[in-house]
């Protein structure tokens, strides 16, 4: 019955495309979390009244973050073609998309991290200082744990944006559900493929949101 409704949809192709989308999303998400937190911490710590207050480093970091956020993702991929080719040895397939996905999303997440850190009670940081804590201790035992719910919901938002980006990357040859919807659905006028790809992407987004909300709620002891 389902094959009547979607005559051009092949289950194994869809499973492969879903797998590619998840592969790109999760791998790049890991990169985004690492670079986003590093950049976010750098922004927070070098900002005014920060532990490493430094106008120049803050402004340079902030400018870089803003530039990468300003470039539309589809153009960013094209701009990064030479870099991707050099780094990954190819400009096609899921692996080739990962550098662009990370570079495109990490600055966005960095801002969310910065906001999350600003929300941490200054008094608690001060209390840690009054106990003789090192900066390292303050980062790992105060700032990150105390901002964890906001960091996690930031990850959720970023992951969902990433799923959208993977679809865009798919259109120019990265594979995944976007690729499938474009080449096998749109180009061949098999619109049932586009519909199924859309449904799967929506389901993935829902699952990410659900998991993110659940974790965020569980770790929030406020």
């Amino acid at each position: 019955m389902l094959s009547d409704l979607f005559p051009n949809v092949k289950a194994e192709d869809m499973i492969e495309a879903t797998y590619e989308t998840l592969y790109m999303t999760i791998l790049s998400l890991i990169g985004v979390i690492i670079f986003g937190i590093l950049l976010g911490l750098l922004l927070y710590l070098t900002n005014k009244n920060g532990i490493w207050e430094n106008k120049y480093i803050y402004q340079i970091t902030s400018a870089v973050v803003n530039i990468f956020r300003a470039v539309p993702f589809i153009i960013l991929i094209l701009l990064l073609f030479p870099f991707t080719g050099f780094l990954m040895g190819t400009v096609r397939g899921p692996n080739a998309a990962i550098p662009a996905l990370i570079i495109g999303s990490a600055p966005f997440y960095a801002r969310l991290v910065e906001i999350a850190l600003v929300e941490v009670d200054k008094g608690v940081v001060e209390a840690a200082k009054s106990m003789g804590a090192k900066t390292k201790t303050i980062i790992f035992k105060v700032l990150l744990p105390e901002s964890m719910p906001a960091l996690v919901s930031g990850i959720t938002v970023t992951a969902i944006a990433l799923i959208g980006y993977t679809a865009m990357a798919g259109v120019i040859g990265a594979g995944g559900l976007g690729n499938r919807a474009h080449y096998y659905g749109f180009m061949r006028r098999d619109f049932d493929v586009v519909v199924v790809c859309t449904i799967i992407i929506v389901i993935i987004v829902f699952i990410f949101q659900f998991i993110g909300d659940m974790i965020s709620k569980r770790i929030d002891k406020r």
């Binding site: 009670d121 008094g123 608690v124 001060e126 209390a127 105390e146 964890m148 770790i219 002891k221």
Partner: peptide, 12 residues
């Protein structure tokens, strides 16, 4: 040192 607003870590 103790503070007016206690300054405890809520995550602990």
């Amino acid at each position: 040192m103790i503070f007016q607003h206690f300054n405890l870590l809520w995550s602990r």
